[in-house]
Amino acid sequence: MGSVALSDRQLRIKSIQYRLKILKYIKMANAGHTGGSLSCIDILNVLYNRILRVSPQTFGHPDRDRYIQSKGHSVEALYVVLADRGFFGESELETLCRYMSRLAGHPTRKVPGIEHNTGALGHGLAFAVGVALTGKKDGRAYRVFVLLGDGELDEGSNWEAMMAASHYGLDNLIAIVDRNMLQITGPTEQVCRLEPLADKLAAFGWSVRIADGHDIPALTDVLSAVPFEPGRPSAIIARTTKGKGVSFMEYDPSWHHGVPDNQQYEIAQQQLEQLLREAGGGQ
């Protein structure tokens, strides 16, 4: 990682700054998956600033840790973090979703720091199984972290991959479920019931832990404890809030894909800046 270790407080501040940027660039692009980006940003923050052994300099190295964002629609969160980590310049974020920009509406390999094209849901975990299998076969020490949406788990291909991962004993594979309880149509439990999710994952041979997906120390602890059991893949159910940090976006599925109007944007900014001041990082 190469940089100076950041304190919990500094990471909390970063999370809010990331949220402000997510909204800024979604507003600028007039397109984006706002709610999900706000729900997973703390997870990405901890991953990229504390856990992942990868940097712009080591991105081509075969031993680097891999991060695969299966819920590709929350790409704005990923772009903001990658830019902050120096994978590309911050100014490029202004080209989000633009014609000829590398920063498309879903992740592509054209972007430095992105391992694989994702966004068609239900692919990332199986892809990660392939990467983790290679690591095992080639005796490499890298870990593979996959971020899954909870709604995404409706796709049966995830469960094929879950079986394969435990069958091959891939303890170098870590799946993080962004459990924000909402998908486009509404609550996950109303659209197609997922619970008891932890039991399901355990029944598929995974070692499962549940964590607060917005709590920096809790995320750090759980992500540092992998593998939870040798010989088994690890699953983290990260309890999150869709739209986290902006009062009128929280718990509202209509913000899955949505751009705030000028007034909403101003209110969102004010709320996040207030949080920033409270965290001790305000201007």
Partner: peptide
């Protein structure tokens, strides 16, 4: 991989990207 062709292709993709 068992009778799971979707998983098979994505796993293959992962293997391919690792060389």
């Amino acid at each position: 991989v068992g009778i799971g062709e979707q998983n098979m292709i994505s796993v293959a993709a992962g293997l391919a990207l690792c060389g």
